[in-house]
Design a protein around this nucleic acid. Structure first.
Lengths: 120, 120
DNA sequence: CAGAATCCCGAATGATACTG
DNA sequence: CAGTATCATTCGGGATTCTG
């Protein structure tokens, strides 16, 4: 796995420039809510209401639009069950799970170091 | 190292809630420009002009404010040399470097998968 | 060269109310 | 329960100009 920017560049000539697909993915995944929704889903399948409570502070509007973006990116799957009352479940796709394997160590580090960083 | 949200929670009771320091760090590091500036610096020390060119599309205003935020967070050091014309160098701190060790695998994965994700 | 200061617009976000 | 619709608002961020 590439562990330096130089290595990444050896395999991609146009990385992280404007209009590069990587910028789009960055915007979706690293967005304020995107990463928190993905984080919540990293624990497993969750329903709309669960996500709303798990992602502290998110509005219904932002949860909806974030989920739609992540679903369009193929990182999240939405499953609606034809029941009354309605039940809808969200889960990571295989690709989403792969992504979160890279994100979780980062989130762990942030959780460990946030106090010191913000304190200064 | 923590590799799941459950593990992270065992060590931190208030993780990723609103008003939690982690949210602040997330906003700084995962911001549109923050991560790209950090990425550019992961290759080593760089001057203002180099950063401006390395981070494609960034305005002077955003470069300045991003650098100030990252410096205040202790992730970047600024060194000004008392010369004419002025020379200023930016570099990752030890903490910044530690952070980027977690970020780079993620960026590599994004570079590898961005095309497929956006194509859909 | 390396910024700081100002002005300003539009997209992103939030709050609220409503619906299948 | 799981959303959508609408409106009000903020503020990220670009363009421009100026300075040590």
């Amino acid at each position: 796995m590439a562990v330096s920017l130089v290595e990444i560049r050896t395999q991609h000539d146009q990385v992280f420039t404007e209009n590069c697909p990587t910028r789009t993915v960055l915007d979706h995944v690293m967005s304020k809510w995107g990463i928190l929704v993905l984080l919540a889903l990293s624990e497993g399948t969750a329903r709309w209401g669960q996500l709303r409570r798990a992602v502290d502070g998110i509005s219904e509007k932002m949860l909806a639009s974030t989920l739609r973006t992540l679903e369009a990116d193929g990182l999240v799957v939405r499953t609606a069950y034809p029941e009354v009352p309605p039940r809808v479940e969200y889960a990571l796709t295989a690709r989403g799970d792969e992504l979160m394997q890279r994100v979780l160590p980062l989130m762990g580090w942030i959780a460990d170091n946030a106090d010191e960083i913000v304190a200064r």
